[in-house]
Design a protein around this nucleic acid. Sequence first.
DNA 1: AATGAGGGCAACCGCTCCATT
DNA 2: GAATGGAGCGGTTGCCCTCAT
Length: 335
Amino acid sequence: MRKPIGGNDTNNLMSSGNSTTMTMKMRKGLWSPEEDEKLMNYMITNGQGCWSDIARNAGLQRCGKSCRLRWINYLRPDLKRGAFSPQEEELIVHLHSLLGNRWSQIAARLPGRTDNEIKNFWNSTVKKRLKKSSSDSSSPNTSHDSSSSEHRDIMGGLISMHDSSNIMAMYMDAARRSSSSSSLSLQAMNMNQMMEQLPLTGDHHGQNMPIMHASCYGTTQVGMDGNGISYHGCYEIFGGNLGLEDEMFNIPPLDNMPSKNQDMKIENLDDRNTMIMTNNMNNIIMNQCYNNSKHKVQAIAAGFENCWEGGDELKVEEWDFEELMREASSFPSLD
DNA sequence: AATGAGGGCAACCGCTCCATT
DNA sequence: GAATGGAGCGGTTGCCCTCAT
């Protein structure tokens, strides 16, 4: 544990020797246990309010912003400490592929984890791993032929999740960055082109198709409790195995998440394109699930939509990524 | 044992969004 | 409609720890 800067001597943070000037210098750096305790006690007693008031009333020489950060990232009682489980890691990779660097939204789907934590985890661990796996696959020794089996392994397994995540992230980033009038449909076509670069699977539903076109299986069971939606089971999407088998995930209540309607109100802002895109993707996923009468829906998009009503169990068996992309290509231009 | 490199993590910074006046 | 302040978010920094040499 690092020692807080300045130790416990908060006086050294006051303007030198003249307390009447009220020019209180805000303390920076690491939090001392005493500060933590003050903030914790105040929050427990008074609850959340205006952060600058909290900082003042709790007797902390901190700016409200700093207090907020400390509370959210460290003191909150519902925080889960410790290393990320493989399941959490996979979920992060998957969510990142859908949401990009929207750490707060990713964090909202990982109970007990903070955006900062996830961001740090991503930047330190996952990014490195992805980089390594991509450099491995691009090395001369892993040329097309020899890599095919590796690709199969990769694409069929967790690493495929990473690769497909990269592609999705690239795609999403492209959509996000695109400030021109180039429509999402064009980007969707590019996505299809990217898909075609991918190795073929043997026989998937009677067709040779890039594995990214593979179906999405969801055998997730969904239940509701007072705290929101929880789901567990085996969850596979975009050809990757999320490996959530027998793992419980609690999805926070909807008030933590933007509603679909809210998202739909977001109009034509470049940096929101991804969100709209994601939403559209999710809508399509949901439509695919509902429209295809051949397929059973068990649950999909549990963490992304939470918007079904009624039935305790929705069933998804599979949906066709190709069709998904066809639908995606028909997205109206956001201009 | 000393030291340098790299990694992990907590916290700050700057920006945007939104509500209020 | 403009100005202002608070909240929230993502990017970045910098400190400390661990590990290899």
